[in-house]
Write a protein that binds this DNA or RNA. Structure first.
Lengths: 246, 246
DNA sequence: AAGTGGTCTAGACCACCAT
DNA sequence: TGGTGGTCTAGACCACTTA
């Protein structure tokens, strides 16, 4: 295997293979839903044994970057509605099952990145951004006010029409139209009080306690893709987190 | 390998090995901190190849049930202060690094399990439980009011003296004294308002918004170990969650 | 029937740790 | 120096999918 581009020559071979595969994924060479070359094919291409390729793919499977189907092949993971709901949407009705939210877009405007936004999106203060406000419904009741910030550089032609007339989830659109797959999120939660405007949107009284979530969504190589600030009415819903030790 | 106790004869061998190892761990045969038999030893004992043993241990390592140390051996994971902080403690000062909390025990009483508690702890309504109220400090400021519920059956001789005079973390005591290792938690979060009593404890005004967390801590085979209800002042702290896709 | 991933084995060699 | 885990290989066989 040609390891000339290897930054750490002592790294195991399978890590090297993983890096090369990830590189092709990040470059958009293999798109979500596509089949990867077979394991034997990859082994030949990189000049390593099948076992080493499997080891590399094992890790990508563990990270849900790719999905294996016995007898069919290995595929680039895609943002199905179901996967999204399962991995990145944490608001559930109290004591009941997860539900799909419905989104209503209230505003789509252009703005300049604040210092904090710029730092989180790894852009420069004042750079152009899209600002999108959505109201999320669960079982036809408004539950979440979502404020999304996207770097204009990453989503150059995005506009309200494209955003609202998408046929699938928001993250699916990021992936399909802009090649930005969300693989990981970090979230910070606090409790706050509803002001008049948000209370009106959520159909609750002003001064009611709300859950406040600040999320950063990240893609390959931890490139930031989206900032999202959410205000959640937890009268009938809650944030659910299941943490196995890692 | 003797597979007579195998419930699913079609399950892969390495899953079988994993099950047997987990069984010994759950039974307390191998205690936290102990070294497991070497991989060659386990291979001989179960009559499988080393590769198969490694595959089984791989999964236990991924779940942080055991820890490998190259050249030394494989050890049963233990609840060091550092691990606990990293995995199960999610309250951080806003914009700063994680800190170790200090615990002050306010109450330790005996009670009867409510219907909901019984269901979550998998015991019967009215069964005896320990009820413990703690105040958690970060940098000498009270931040969290913790109410813990433990089944008396799992912690038969636990009392205030044992609880408060432990030398290490609470979870470390569960593990060391009662053989109950916390491997996983599920948490439900809501926003609520501080009542007079809690406000006084946390040194905030009544009516301030608080983060409310309901946690269930689980051990091997998802046996419930602890219920914990927390009220968190998020004026200067926040709940942090880092979710990689799984 | 051909091709894919899934399991299992056996063995070589390396890196690290204790003694 | 001997024992441990870590990497890598090569090959056999199985299970599943597609045609």
């Amino acid at each position: 295997m040609n390891r000339s581009t290897d930054l750490d020559p002592s790294a195991p071979l399978y890590k090297e293979v993983k890096r090369l595969v990830t590189q092709e994924l990040a470059s958009g060479e293999w798109r979500p839903g596509d089949a990867l070359p077979s394991e034997t094919e990859l082994a030949k291409r990189y000049g390593v044994s099948i076992g080493t390729v499997r080891r590399a793919i094992d890790e990508l499977v563990a990270e849900s970057v790719v999905i294996r189907h016995q007898g069919r092949g290995t595929f680039v993971a895609s943002h199905s509605r179901r996967r999204l709901l399962f991995y990145f949407f944490h608001i559930v009705p109290r004591g009941r099952e997860k539900e799909y939210p419905n989104t209503r877009t209230l505003a789509f405007i252009r703005g300049d990145a604040s210092k904090e936004e710029a730092q989180k999106l790894r852009i420069t203060e004042g750079d152009p951004v899209h600002r999108i406000r959505n109201l999320l419904y669960l079982s036809d009741a408004p539950v979440i006010v979502d404020d999304i910030v996207l770097s204009h550089a990453q989503f150059p032609d995005l506009n309200k029409k494209i955003f609202t007339e998408r046929e699938n989830t928001i993250y699916h659109m990021y992936e399909n139209r802009y090649g930005l797959s969300v693989l990981r999120t970090t979230e910070r939660l606090r409790a706050t009080l509803a002001d008049t405007k948000v209370a009106k949107l959520l159909g609750v009284r002003k001064g009611i306690p709300l859950l406040e979530i600040s999320r950063v969504a990240l893609s390959y190589h931890n490139v930031p893709v989206e900032l999202r600030h959410s205000l959640v009415s937890t009268e009938h819903h809650e944030y659910f987190s299941d943490l196995a030790r890692k």
